[in-house]
């Protein structure tokens, strides 16, 4: 066991875990941040997507010992202010994107990172950025629509809940 002090959603959090523990399980088991999901553990599904210094990263493939001073952002800390929603979260709500919802924190984290890099993505940009995130319920049509809505490329009212 080793002690680590991590910066998570702007807060300093200390944990005492084995050095090879993936950040995913540190978040879920040690810190009760269960929005980051386990889907495969091998980097293939994207359910565990978080931001490390703003870059979308697979928490299941990130041993806690490698995080260091990097800033960790999880779905719980994505919105700039607590009680508010990030534009992607808002679009996901407006369009009722989710079915079971299990993949959606990962989808939202990836989509938010895409829009930071590329505020007006085209269809190919969207598919390219989101290709690493599986949705078993296959909500892909609404994921595309949600990103376009969050980017201001469309207005709510095109499918989904209104």
């Amino acid at each position: 066991m080793s002690k680590y002090t991590l910066t998570i959603n702007g807060q300093s959090r200390s944990v005492d875990v084995a050095s090879d523990t993936p950040l995913l399980w540190v978040l879920r088991d040690s810190l009760d941040l269960v929005g980051t999901k386990y889907g495969c553990g091998v980097g293939m599904c994207g359910a565990c997507t978080i931001h490390l210094n703003g870059v979308p990263t697979r928490a299941c493939m990130t041993p806690v010992s490698t995080v260091g001073k990097m800033k960790v952002t999880t779905i719980e800390g994505l919105a700039a202010e607590s009680g508010k929603l990030h534009p992607v979260q808002q679009a996901w709500s407006d369009l009722d994107v989710a079915q079971c919802g299990y993949c959606q924190s990962g989808q939202i984290m990836t989509a938010a990172a895409l829009l930071k890099d590329n505020p007006k993505p085209n269809d190919e940009d969207i598919d390219g950025a989101m290709a690493g995130n599986l949705c078993r319920c296959a909500t892909y049509m609404r994921i595309r629509a949600g990103i376009k809505l969050a980017a201001g490329l469309t207005t709510a009212g095109q499918g989904g809940a209104r």
Binding site: D32, L33, V34, G35, T36, K37, T74, I75, E76, A79, L85, Q89, W92, S93, D94, D96, A98, G101, Y102, Q104, S105, I108, G160, A161, R162
Partner: peptide, 18 residues
């Protein structure tokens, strides 16, 4: 009509649910 799932706020903010 089109109604968003009741659990949507929890889903999009990563609250304990599953």
């Amino acid at each position: 009509t089109r109604i968003a799932q009741f659990d949507t706020p929890k889903i999009v903010t990563g609250k304990s649910l599953f």
